[in-house]
Amino acid sequence: MAESVDVPIIAPVAPSYAHPGDAGADLISAETVLLGAGQRALVGTGVRIALPDGYAAFVVPRSGLAAKHGITIVNSPGTIDAGYRGEIKVALLNTDAMNDYQITAGDRIAQLIVMPVPRVRFLPVDELPDSVRGDGGFGSTGYDTSARTPR
Rank of each mutant, 00 (worst) to 15 (best):
V7I: 15
A91G: 03
L92A: 01
A66W: 06
P77Y: 01
E3Y: 06
L93I: 15
D22W: 10
G44E: 07
V114G: 02
Y84R: 09
S63V: 05
T141W: 13
I113A: 01
T149A: 11
M115R: 08
T95R: 07
Y17H: 14
I71C: 03
F138T: 14
I80M: 11
R119L: 12
V132N: 02
D53S: 13
G137N: 15
T104N: 11
V5F: 08
D26V: 07
G46S: 13
S131I: 08
A37G: 03
I109K: 04
L51A: 03
I113G: 01
D6C: 05
L35H: 00
D6M: 06
I9Q: 04
I88E: 00
G86H: 05
S140C: 09
G106A: 13
A67G: 01
D53E: 12
G46D: 06
R148T: 10
A91N: 14
V60K: 11
A105M: 07
R121K: 15
A11T: 09
A2Y: 07
H19N: 15
Q102I: 06
A110I: 01
T145N: 08
V90D: 01
P52Q: 09
M98D: 13
P20C: 02
A14M: 10
L92N: 01
D107G: 06
G106R: 10
A30R: 07
L34W: 12
S4K: 07
R133I: 08
E3F: 04
P118W: 07
T104W: 02
V59D: 00
D96P: 07
I80G: 06
L112M: 11
F138R: 15
G38K: 03
P124L: 04
L35E: 05
V132F: 09
G21C: 14
E87Q: 12
V43W: 01
G86D: 03
G142C: 15
P129D: 09
G54W: 12
Y84T: 02
D135C: 04
G70F: 11
S131H: 13
A23R: 04
A105T: 02
V114P: 00
T72V: 11
L112I: 01
I49C: 11
P61K: 10
A91M: 14
Y17G: 00
P61C: 14
Y84F: 15
G70Y: 08
A50R: 09
D130W: 11
P129K: 02
F138P: 01
L128T: 12
L112D: 00
A67R: 13
